[in-house]
Design a protein around this nucleic acid. Structure first.
Lengths: 165, 165
DNA sequence: AAAAATAGTTGCATTTGTCCACTATTTGCC
DNA sequence: GGCAAATAGTGGACAAATGCAACTATTTTT
């Protein structure tokens, strides 16, 4: 049974009930904040809003010929969402698409010159944004959190870390 | 300039470019996964989908008379989104609302019997879900991450921790 | 050759978020 | 007292994102 508190009118008088000790709460909440901040910094940048565009652009840029379905796994979207995302980016002339010669049901994605340029612009912004946003966490602790979440993420999407093949 | 890798067809051959070392990426991605998992567990539960309903219910349950605007700060929504959320929960007979006597522009929120019941059901589920979901992170590390994110969150929403008044 | 699996597309319904303008009430200032 | 500004909440419009399911095309299995 939670501690009862009454009619709080300011946030200082509030305790978070069981959410206080619930990691998912902090993940979900920080996500809102960090995403909003990122969107603000990328305003007008063709790649703002929603998770996925940035990752997609960077991934295609550094893995020419990568497939939509691989990206989908990485950003945890289903294929239809991924398709729409790519469509959008093609319309914005950031990516181009061609069906794979060896696997004619699959596609290969490539950045356009404009896409490559944007990727170069984006890269430092994204890095800086994350550092800045979490700057009130000590550098060291940031690294700690990242290290743990990275391992979690890897397991989740099935990146083994050791490339076995 | 990122390492170039070509035409990866499986996720093991992919590296995440600068996102590899970007905390915001992991926060955003883990958010998707954890939210999806939570929704699945709460399916049909009147409180599934989207951030906010759970927090709102628990908060009102343990802080009878709390105001919408305070909750809005905590879950980082604007007032209009908050209003809609509450409206929805009132329609589901989870909350009830009355204008404050002392502050006639403000409202006080209370749980209905049904809301209280649901809160009791939800509480252990939410806790368990978070623990389960992150179970591949050692208990100790979970606590570490949570501790850090908690502090970050507090600073962000302006919870001082020390109740000064 | 047929069946199952995989890659991607499309449509639809639901939800969400955001922006902005509007009302009501309270507070502060002259 | 009275007017301006701040605060609490509401409502509407609009743009996006999400998830689901059905559908085509291609490859793999058997």
């Amino acid at each position: 049974m939670p501690k009862m508190m009454s009619k709080p009118t300011t946030i200082e008088h509030v305790n978070l009930d069981v959410l206080e000790d619930t990691l998912s709460f902090y993940i979900r909440t920080m996500n809102i904040a960090v995403s909003r901040d990122l969107d603000a910094r990328l305003d007008g940048c063709d790649v703002a809003r929603g998770t996925g565009k940035i990752t997609t652009l960077l991934l295609v840029d550094s893995h020419p010929g990568i497939r939509p379905s691989v990206i989908a796994q990485i950003i945890m979207k289903d294929r239809s969402a991924m398709g729409r995302l790519i469509e959008q980016m093609i319309e914005h002339d950031l990516l181009r698409r061609q069906t794979s010669a060896s696997e004619r049901r699959a596609q290969e994605l490539y950045v356009t010159p404009k896409g490559a340029e944007l990727a170069a612009v984006i890269r430092p912004i994204v890095t800086k944004q994350s550092k800045d946003f979490f700057s009130f966490i000590a550098e060291e602790e940031q690294a700690q959190v990242m290290d743990i979440l990275r391992r979690a993420y890897r397991k989740m999407v099935g990146m083994t870390g050791e490339k076995r093949c």
